[in-house]
Design a binder for these strands. Sequence first.
DNA 1: ACTGGCTCCTGAGGGC
DNA 2: TGCCCTCAGGAGCCAG
Length: 271
Amino acid sequence: MPELPEVETTRRGIEPHLVGRRVRAVAVHQPQLRYPVPAALARELPGQTIRRVGRRAKYLLLEGERGTLILHLGMSGSLRLVPASDPLRPHDHLCLTMEGGLQLRLHDPRRFGAALWTRDDHLAHPLLRGLGPEPLGDDFTGIHLHRAAQGRRIAVKALLMESRIVVGVGNIYASEALFRAGIDPRRAAGRIALARYERLADCVRETLTEALEAGGTTLRDYLRSDGEPGYFALRLDVYGRTGEACRRCDTPIRQVRLAQRSTFYCPGCQR
DNA sequence: ACTGGCTCCTGAGGGC
DNA sequence: TGCCCTCAGGAGCCAG
């Protein structure tokens, strides 16, 4: 499932093939994604040159000259660049034919992803406005987390996954970062000391950075834009390891449900 | 202002 | 072998 490292890996994979190239055609094969794919996309994007391939949170931003294509991979989405003559696979919902003959295809079996089009400043888009800091940027600190947690009684893991607190930390890396920080994911967010949040912020950054370097985590659906899997799954400490021995203290990893999400932690290491 | 629950969707995997 | 059931989850939205 694409989290921030997977989205950034994808961005880096497609960027060199898109920037400076003109979009020849846009084909929408399945407009019912998380939101309906706007008709204006296929009408307005063709003919425009891609100026930049950016990212905000888990949104990919393909900036044209007079508008931006906002893409989200949801749970099962992936982007691949293939020759335009390649046969279409099931669940290839959106295809951008680029000058030069390559086609960018959004493949998303579960259709939790999104493809939106905006003519305005994309950062002002309702989905992007109000997002918290990037976890790998300078604004993301222990002080920021500690302040945001004041008065909050939700579990710290749920707080870490709120996009207005910090973006890009999904279910896998939230469990992993809390393990590294030695914090029990069930602990009330407002009852954690600043020093522990400093450590947690460091662990979030460290976990995401390592995952990025490994090309992301491939569990079920995710593949990089070149079709290769990511290798961070080999390094997961707690996610998906229910009952297995903690790598640090041998205690069996425990699984609980927090805010409707599977959560993994080591009862020996995390307090 | 917070909080928890609901919703969209398909494929994998387990049990029988 | 094959079928059916459950579960997985990003994140916006809504009711309490």
